[in-house]
């Protein structure tokens, strides 16, 4: 590999696919907003109660919404035969997997982070804390998408892999969810934000290799 242009092409293809699907952008957003907005109806709309659980609700909604469109990310490539082509390239497959996951996060994950302030306000969360909290949601969301990508790669050859993806990915979300929730309560500058970043870095260093190993199995 002389230049990173194969990776740029992989990234571009993944972006194009996410947009072309349409649902790739809108489905997680709808799920995220819908799940969060259901909470006041179930726990009551008392302001003090909502504000104390609001940031936590956003974390749960973010974790679940990150998995909504994960099923197709690698499965489509396997069905089209595109994965076969990538698997025979000199470009390492883990880099291609990483490019695809990051592209998917840009299209489906970043909009969720941008949505946290308005939904947080609706949940009576202190408005001043919401914008700094976006950093935590952004870092946590990236970790969720990375682990979701591993699960998606493992489930690529399974016909209805959605449930399998949730079962595989949700346990991996736990450290990120713990430190993420603490970080949004502590605010920026607290130690939990560093631990949250550590979980994201850990995901970033492990997930691409795990996903590419799973894809090699799927393509065999």
């Amino acid at each position: 590999m002389r230049s990173p242009s194969p990776l740029r092409a992989a990234f571009r293809q993944a972006l194009g696919e996410a947009w072309a699907g349409g649902a790739g952008v809108l489905l997680p957003i709808g799920f995220f907003a819908g799940a969060a907005m259901l909470v006041p109806f179930t726990v009551g709309s008392e302001a003090s109660q909502l504000s104390s659980i609001g940031t936590g609700i956003l974390w749960v909604a973010l974790a679940l919404a990150s998995l909504v469109s994960m099923e197709r990310v690698f499965q489509a490539d396997l069905e089209d035969g595109v994965l076969e082509l990538w698997a025979q390239e000199e470009t390492p497959l883990f880099l291609v997997a990483a490019a695809k996951i990051i592209a998917h996060w840009l299209v489906s994950g970043l909009p969720l982070v941008l949505l946290t302030p308005p939904i947080g306000i609706a949940l009576q969360v202190d408005a001043g804390a919401l914008v700094p909290a976006m950093l935590a949601y952004g870092l946590g969301g990236l970790a969720f998408f990375l682990w979701g990508g591993v699960a998606g790669a493992l489930a690529a050859s399974v016909a209805r892999g959605g449930l399998l993806i949730s079962l595989l990915a949700l346990p991996l979300f736990v450290p990120t969810a713990i430190f993420g929730a603490l970080a949004t309560i502590e605010g920026p500058g607290g130690p939990s934000l560093l631990f949250l970043s550590a979980t994201t870095l850990f995901a970033l260093s492990i997930a691409p290799f795990a996903a590419s190993a799973a894809l090699r199995l799927a393509v065999d």
Binding site: R8, D80, E84
Partner: peptide, 19 residues
């Protein structure tokens, strides 16, 4: 074939040409 449902022959050949 390795051709995606939304991909045109132009996009397909441009993509792999880039790769």
């Amino acid at each position: 074939n390795g051709l995606k449902p939304h991909e045109t022959p132009r996009a397909h050949l441009t993509h792999w040409g880039r790769v």
